[in-house]
Nucleic acid binder design. Structure first.
Length: 913
RNA sequence: GCCCAAGUGGCGGAAUGGUAGACGCAGGGGAUUCAAAAUCCCCCGCUGGUAACAGCGUGCGAGUUCGAGUCUCGCCUUGGGCACCA
């Protein structure tokens, strides 16, 4: 073979690894363990470049750790439950299970050629009954520990489809599918008691040193701890048993600026009033209208209703404040009631302006110190309030200080007490869906809600029992409609009973899969001995989009699993290190109209960027950028990305609601619907098909090593990388060059000059040093740049055969985490021992990293003016002497003495004149 | 509105406070070839200069330092997170 043939080589070495079984993880041996994990994919049916990048990074880490003497666990599985499968069943018939397992088979077939160091013997899908059965066992244990409970919750209810809608599925207050006005309805749902752990989940963030600061911060904000004062306003005249209104405030220092009290329409007092007064009922009905989406809230006008009730100010009993019901007050934060201080709160200010309530500043608008007031309301002569003086003297305090002083003051005066609140809510896990893990409880007329007996697990989803197909043709939960599945007996009394038909949020599935990988076939959720050995995940890699929900839920679950005896204490923070990688982007046209205007013909070359005129950039998100499906019989593809809206012709964008249905599976983080998510039909997509980079076609054209090399080479891993055809071409050429260089080593002269050998050896050790540092610090792009440089050195070196052979073997080794097949081939070609995959990582010789002679720049007043070459270990004084004798320095000094000479050994000389 | 991050050639990007622009892409020139592909060599921040060289240069403005892309402060721009959260 005289040319590098990726297809041949890659198949050959994958087979060799398989036969050697080197990626199968066992607990044997005394090597330190290392668990590397990439966020597992949703089986959409096709892998994309985002997957390639994610798994390549994980593979680099895994292979490097193998080479450095670790016992590595590197598993792969499938996040397989969720809406797309159910929608496919709805749109094209068939069963979600068949659709899913077919997709898994397809994706596995596409992933295998990448040559990943995965222990496939541990593979599972979350829709395997073996997995979700253990998840049900876990649920029952959590139920027994009080970590799960049932309560009423307000949800978006579509009265036509008779289903609960996620916030993202409510568009302009209407159900995405039915178009019916969405109602807010109270339903009984299951919840994880995650809010009880808010404090701990927050505090433990500090210990996650190897997590990106950004992710920790996002979680901190999400948990949203706040310190404030909770106290009661007494009502002047009580109403039907209500004689006080409890409020919570984070700004007790503005208490003297209170001009009204507001309560939520869902507040108990409002509900009582509603029952007895028609005008209140009418207002509350109006206020409750509209969904709970961020968009609906944004648009809603601030409305208030004066109940006529009056509240007494706790520090000024002569002051009576009106009690309003207001639509902007949420029942589920704080106490569902507030006091309004229009002078120091924008929202209260708007409300007060609208209803002509007094605006009472409590701080002077001093320079510095005091917070600025809305300009119109800075009083001519400021009224330094009694309150500020009362507890803080004349000094106007700000921020936390003022708040704490106010709390202290209030507590001392018997007005309420300081409390800590969190934004984090309990995690509602009930989904009215078929394709999810059934919640293993039974409803019994006599016993109520009864946990299913463990010996009856798994509670399996019905497939096609008794020839009764699952009915996906109509909206709602197919489990509800199933004629027999719900029927069961009560595990407690044995009487006929009904199964719970809600299934679990798919985030539950992904909250503990990392633990299951340590013992994927254990008869209990985990095997403690295995968990003790393998946990924690040493390096977790995935997309930033999971910064909050998935990672927070996993942290909660790990704690819950410890409490229920399924994980050791050390695993309550399951991911020691986290790396969030960027996306793979690619320029493209957004739709056929645009494409035609740009003058693109269909026979343009694959992947070429054709015209900059109307192109736009699309970000391919991990893990599922493109979902192919049929909708109403038409083939479509969904593309989620930052397409600039105005670039897209309206007719090319299918309805957002179709998109959201497919997105619901991954329950969007709140507010993400604002992220310009656009959807392009595949009919249009195929016309501009050249915009989609399909890993399979790249691999068949260039080979896996090229794809791997490229996705790592161009950008830092945490940043987005743009896929370009020329970049892929360059990667391919480079690998072919390395192979060629290796195959020509045999032609090198037996003996060369010792200088040439020495020089190559030094370069080699420098390369070892820098590449190792790069790989260890996720500086893959820098490591690759160093490998390019070393390759250039090697190619031009006049060293002899032995030195060149050694250098080439080392090059192959250093490249092996990124291009394992090519490296393996070169290793074998040059007589390396065994497999390069298991060969010990080369170690740089510190002595070889420093050259005998170094070039030092000479600066004069910080500007480079000359350079000298001196031995690296020459004493400072000698260096100084030589520098001062340099022509350029002598000339600049012009006979004068330098003020100062700074010599940094091996670095620089600076002469200050 | 609140919080966070990032701004370096035509492009992606290098650079423990110590020669800014490594490495790659794109571009230009050349060798090889009947020709091409492939390969190899050279140039490539801006301005002036044939050149040697000089001046300028890491978003803008200050500061610390012998020395700042890197540290501090203030702006500008872009990106991200949170949000009727009291």
């Amino acid at each position: 073979m005289s040319r590098y043939s990726a297809a041949e080589i890659e198949a050959k070495w994958q087979q060799a690894w398989d036969q050697a079984g080197i990626f199968e993880a066992t607990r044997e041996g005394d090597k330190p363990k290392y668990y590397v994990l990439e966020m597992f994919p949703y089986p959409s049916g096709r892998i994309h470049m985002g997957h390639v990048r994610n798994y390549t990074m994980g593979d680099v880490v895994a292979r490097y750790k193998i080479a450095t003497g670790h016992n590595v666990l590197h598993p792969m599985g499938w996040d397989a439950f969720g809406m797309p499968a159910e929608n496919a069943a709805m749109a094209i018939g068939g069963h979600p299970k068949d659709w899913t397992y077919q997709n898994i088979a397809d994706m596995r077939a596409q992933m295998k050629p990448l040559g990943l160091s995965i222990d496939w013997s541990r593979e599972f899908a979350t829709c395997d009954p073996e997995y979700y059965g253990q998840q049900q066992a876990l649920f029952l244990d959590m139920l027994a520990e009080g970590l799960v409970y049932r309560k009423n919750a307000v949800v978006n209810w579509d009265p036509v489809d008779m289903t609960v809608l996620a916030n993202e599925q409510v568009i302009d207050g209407k159900g995405w599918r039915s178009g019916a006005e969405v109602e807010r309805r109270e339903l009984t749902q299951w919840f994880f008691r995650i809010s009880d752990m808010a404090e701990e989940l927050l505090e433990a963030l500090d210990g996650l040193e190897n997590w990106p600061a950004k992710v920790r911060l996002m979680q901190e904000n999400w948990i949203g701890k706040s310190r404030g004062l909770q106290f009661a306003f007494g009502l002047v005249d009580g109403f039907d048993g209500h004689d006080r209104v409890e409020v919570y405030t984070t700004r007790p220092d503005t208490l003297m600026g209170a001009s009204f009290v507001g309560i939520s329409p869902d507040h108990p007092l409002a509900k009582t009033l509603e029952r007895e007064r028609e005008d209140v009922a009418a207002f509350c009905a109006e206020a409750r209208k509209g969904g709970t989406t961020a968009e609906a809230i944004e648009k809603a006008e601030k409305m208030g209703f004066d109940t006529g009730l009056r509240a007494r100010h706790p520090f000024d009993t002569s002051c009576e404040l009106p009690v309003y019901i207001a639509n902007f007050i949420l029942m589920d934060y704080g106490t569902g009631a507030i006091f309004g201080c229009p002078a120091h709160d924008q929202r209260d200010f708007e409300f007060a302006t609208k209803y002509e309530l007094p605006i009472i500043p409590v701080f002077e608008p001093l320079d510095g110190g005091a917070e600025p007031l809305p300009e119109a309301f800075v009083p001519a002569k400021s009224d330094k309030t009694r309150f500020v003086r009362g507890f803080a003297g004349d000094e106007v305090q700000t921020g936390e200080e003022a708040v704490n002083a106010a709390i202290e003051f209030c507590e001392a005066n018997g007005v309420g007490q300081g409390v800590t609140k969190f934004r984090l809510r309990d995690w509602g896990l009930s989904r009215q869906r078929y394709w999810g893990c059934p919640i293993p409880v039974v409803h019994c007329a006599a016993c109520g809600v009864v946990p299913e007996a463990k010996e009856n697990l798994p509670v399996q989803l019905p497939y096609d029992e008794d020839g009764t197909p699952i009915d996906f043709s109509t909206p709602g939960n197919p489990l509800d409609r199933h004629p027999t599945w719900r029927d069961c007996t009560c595990p407690s009394c044995g009487a006929p009973a009904t199964r719970e038909t809600d299934t679990m949020d798919t985030f539950v599935d992904s909250s503990w899969y990392y633990a299951r990988f340590t013992a994927p076939h254990a008869a209990t959720p985990t095997d403690m001995a295995e968990a003790e050995y393998w946990m924690n995940v040493d390096q977790y890699i995935g997309g930033i989009e999971h910064a909050i929900l998935h990672l927070l839920y996993s942290r909660f679950f790990a704690r819950a699993m410890h409490i229920t005896g399924h994980l050791p204490k050390k695993a309550i923070e399951p991911f020691n290190a986290l790396f969030t990688q960027g996306m793979v982007t690619h320029e493209m046209y957004a739709g056929a109209e645009t494409t035609r205007e740009a003058g693109v013909s269909s026979d343009e070359e694959e992947g070429q960027v054709i015209n900059a005129g109307r192109e736009t950039r699309v970000k391919y998100y991990f893990p599922e950028d493109v979902i192919r499906f049929e909708f109403n019989g038409r083939p479509k593809a969904l593309l989620r990305g930052a397409v600039e809206k105005e670039e897209i012709d309206a007719q090319n964008v299918i309805a957002l609601n179709e998109f959201w249905e497919f997105e619901r599976r991954r329950t969007k983080t709140v507010g993400e619907e604002d992220n310009a998510l656009d959807v392009i039909p595949s009919a249009k997509m195929s016309k501009s098909k050249k915009n989609v980079v399909d890993p399979a076609s790249i691999i068949s054209a260039y080979g896996a090593d090229t794809a791997r090399w490229f996705v790592l080479s161009d950008s830092p891993p945490e940043r987005d990388v743009e896929w370009t055809a020329s970049g892929a071409e360059a990667a391919s050429k480079h690998l072919a060059r390395v192979w060629r260089i290796a195959s020509e080593v045999a032609n090198a002269p037996e003996a060369a000059t010792p200088e040439a050998d020495e020089a190559l050896l030094r370069e080699m050790h420098k390369a070892i040093d820098e590449v190792t540092k790069g790989v260890e610090s996720f500086g893959f792009n820098a490591a690759i740049a160093r490998l390019y440089a070393f390759t250039n050195t090697l190619a031009r070196s006049g060293a002899g055969k032995a030195a060149k052979t050694g250098a080439t073997l080392t090059l192959a080794q250093l490249m092996s985490p990124m291009t394992p097949h090519l490296s393996e081939d070169i290793w074998a070609m040059l007589g390396g021992e065994g497999l390069v995959a298991t060969a010990p990582w080369p170690v740089a010789d510190a002595k070889m990293l420093v050259d005998e002679n170094v070039t030092l720049p000479i600066q004069i007043n910080g500007k480079r003016r000359a350079e000298i070459s001196v031995p690296h270990d020459m004493p400072k004084s000698e260096v100084e002497k030589i520098a001062l004798a340099h022509d350029a320095v002598v000339k600049a000094l012009d006979g004068a003495q330098p003020k100062k000479v700074i010599v940094v050994p091996g670095r620089i000389v600076n002469v200050v004149i």
